[in-house]
Computed example of a mutant assay.
Amino acid sequence: MKIELFYDKECPFCNSYAQYIKIKENHNLILTNARDSINQLKDFKSLGFDINDGFIIKVDDKKLYQGVDAIVFLNKLSEKKVFFPDNFFFRTFVYSSIKTVRKIVLFIFDKNSKL
């Protein structure tokens, strides 16, 4: 399975998560810095996926997942699991809090949180 993960490499949380997940042994995982892929981000946006709303993964050049769905999908495949339960609380409160903290951290580091 070919999995391409688009993430914000400037965000320390996003970068740490992307480096942490261990699915490379069983799948073709490609880590792509979204800041270097502006044309692809425009294509995603035309399909209703905005990188500013979270990770985007493309599976076998066919299926797209974003945000919570992307994390849950990757967590199911990963040998090093991060405890992200697929439930209402995580989807509604925890993930939105993570996105808010990301914006604050990027602001502190003088990085643009909008791609």
Rank of each mutant, 00 (worst) to 15 (best):
M1A: 08
K2W: 00
I3W: 02
L5V: 13
L5A: 04
F6W: 10
F6A: 07
F6I: 06
F6Y: 15
Y7W: 09
D8M: 06
D8I: 09
D8C: 05
D8L: 05
K9N: 15
E10L: 09
E10Q: 15
E10D: 15
C11Y: 08
C11V: 05
N15H: 13
S16V: 01
Y17G: 02
A18H: 01
Q19F: 09
Y20R: 03
Y20W: 09
N28V: 08
I30N: 14
R35G: 05
I38T: 14
I38R: 11
Q40E: 15
Q40I: 07
L41V: 13
K42D: 15
D43N: 14
K45W: 10
S46I: 04
S46P: 07
L47T: 05
G48H: 06
F49S: 04
F49Q: 01
D50V: 08
I51R: 10
G54D: 03
F55D: 02
I56F: 03
K58S: 03
K58R: 13
V59H: 01
D60M: 01
Y65Q: 03
Q66V: 07
G67Q: 02
G67A: 05
D69R: 03
A70H: 03
I71Y: 01
F73N: 06
K76Y: 13
L77I: 08
L77K: 10
S78L: 07
K80D: 11
K81S: 10
K81V: 03
N87E: 05
T92K: 15
F93A: 08
F93T: 06
V94W: 07
V94F: 10
S97C: 09
S97A: 14
S97Y: 14
I98F: 14
I98K: 04
K99H: 11
K99Y: 13
T100F: 15
V101L: 15
R102Y: 08
R102F: 12
V105C: 12
L106E: 06
K111S: 09
K111M: 09
N112A: 08
N112C: 06
S113Q: 13
L115Y: 14
